[in-house]
């Protein structure tokens, strides 16, 4: 069992949702990313998604695009992603990598899965890998016994939902709405509907992402989902802060507030 799967058993037994935080590796710099993740964990984030910054992030809104661009301009690549993963996982926090498919394909699916496992990572989220194209990846994750997390969307039909969720382990990433990543003012009912439909076809924990940024939103999602994913809101705090010190304080505060939200 991966640390990620163990986490969901724990949060289920505590009758609460898990809080999952996202940050791209190398943002704002390699070390500051690790510091910000520590602040997130101190504030109460249960698990970390480390983004592999990519040149053509079609699922991401302006906040994550800007963060990825900054990270890439400093030369972030696979090496930095794996060392960040190792730094986080070694503290005992469940950690996964979120990446578009091409960096995996370039690295080699087997090699990528192997190095995730070697770094102590629990798995990988692949937002643009369709199950039809996943054969080499499926073999790689099974061999390394890491979690394979696919994204489902409100537009995913029931029949397909069964097919995609059958490929998931660790958790299922439910996109709360039709759109790209970013902070939004209110939650949509589409997330609740989607999670309900996933429950009909799968026992795997479901975490909701896209647009969650406040304690109240986290609290609402925690009523029906097993996990709440927050990314852009943390990144925006770091982008807006005058200094890294200020950014870390604000990140810790947001994490603390969200952690209260996920407790039902």
């Amino acid at each position: 069992m991966t640390p990620l799967s163990a986490l969901f058993e724990k949060t289920r037994s505590e009758n609460r949702a898990a809080l999952i935080g996202y940050l791209p590796a190398g943002f704002p710099s390699k070390q500051e990313c690790i510091d910000a993740i520590s602040a997130m964990v101190e504030g109460g984030v249960d698990a970390i998604e480390i983004g592999f910054p990519y040149s053509d992030p079609v699922m991401d809104g302006p906040i994550i695009q800007a963060a990825a661009e900054l990270s890439l301009s400093q030369g972030t690549g696979a090496k930095e992603v794996f060392s960040t993963l190792e730094a986080v996982a070694s503290t005992g926090t469940p950690a996964v990598v979120m990446t578009y498919w091409n960096p995996i394909e370039r690295y080699g699916a087997q090699n990528f899965a192997r190095d995730i496992a070697k770094a102590g990572g629990s798995g990988v989220i692949t937002p643009d890998l369709t199950v039809e194209e996943a054969t080499p990846w499926r073999e790689a994750v099974q061999k390394e016994e890491i979690n394979s997390i696919f994204v489902v969307a409100p537009s995913t039909k029931d029949e397909r939902l069964a097919k995609v969720t059958a490929e998931c382990s660790g958790f299922i990433y439910a996109a709360s709405l039709m759109g790209v990543t970013g902070t939004r003012t209110s939650d949509s009912t589409s997330a609740r509907d989607l999670v309900g439909r996933v429950r009909q076809v799968s026992q795997t924990p479901v975490a909701v992402g896209l647009g969650v940024s406040t304690r109240d939103q986290a609290h609402e999602v925690a009523q029906y989902a097993d996990g709440v994913i927050v990314g852009s809101a943390f990144i925006r705090l770091l982008q807006e802060s005058q200094s890294m010190g200020e950014g870390l304080i604000r990140v810790r505060e947001l994490a603390k507030s969200l952690a209260e939200g996920v407790r039902r």
């Binding site: 643009d128 994204v151 995913t156 397909r160 759109g179």
Partner: peptide
């Protein structure tokens, strides 16, 4: 096809 699931439908 290598796209977000949202576009599959």
């Amino acid at each position: 096809r290598f796209v977000p699931e949202a576009l599959i439908e």
